[in-house]
Amino acid sequence: MRFSSLGLIGLGAALALTSFVSSASAVVTFNQNLASGWTQGSGTSNGHFTVDSEDNGVELGLRASLRFIGPITPTGNLYIAPAGNSSGKALWNFEFSVNPGSLTGTHSLLTITGPGGSLAFDPIIIGDNTPIGGPLYQNSENLGFAFLGGPINFNPNVSGVYTFDLKLFSAENRQLADVSIQVNAVPEPSTWAMLILGFAGVGFMAYRRKSRPAALAA
Rank of each mutant, 00 (worst) to 15 (best):
S25P: 04
G70C: 06
W38K: 03
W38F: 12
G160M: 05
E59D: 03
V186H: 00
L166S: 06
N77Y: 01
I9P: 01
K210P: 01
G149N: 07
A214Y: 11
T113Y: 03
G150H: 05
L66H: 09
M194C: 11
L176A: 04
M1Q: 10
F3I: 03
G84V: 10
S108C: 08
S180F: 09
N93I: 05
G7P: 00
L216E: 15
A35L: 11
G150M: 09
A200S: 08
L176E: 00
E95A: 07
G134L: 15
D165Q: 14
R212E: 13
F121D: 05
H48Q: 15
S25G: 00
G134S: 14
F68W: 11
G203H: 04
D128Q: 11
G203M: 09
L197H: 06
L216R: 15
A35V: 06
L91D: 03
N56R: 13
V51W: 07
G88Y: 10
E141F: 01
G7L: 06
Y207R: 11
N139T: 03
N77F: 00
S25W: 10
A90E: 12
T18V: 11
L166K: 04
A35P: 04
L195S: 06
G101F: 01
V51N: 04
L15N: 04
P213H: 06
N85W: 06
L168N: 02
R67E: 10
N31Q: 14
S180G: 07
Q138S: 09
P100H: 01
P100R: 10
G61W: 00
F121T: 00
H107V: 11
P74W: 06
F204K: 06
P131F: 01
I124Q: 15
S65C: 04
F199D: 07
S42L: 13
F199P: 06
N31I: 01
N56K: 00
L62Q: 03
L60D: 11
D52C: 10
G133F: 01
P115F: 04
Y137Q: 03
D122N: 05
G203A: 14
D178C: 02
S36E: 10
V27Y: 05
V51T: 03
A146C: 01
Q175S: 03
A13D: 08
L60Q: 00
S19C: 12
G150E: 05
V158N: 14
G149I: 06
G117Y: 04
I125K: 02
G114C: 13
S97F: 05
A146K: 12
G7I: 01
F30E: 15
I112C: 07
L15D: 04
G84T: 02
S140T: 09
F121K: 09
N173S: 15
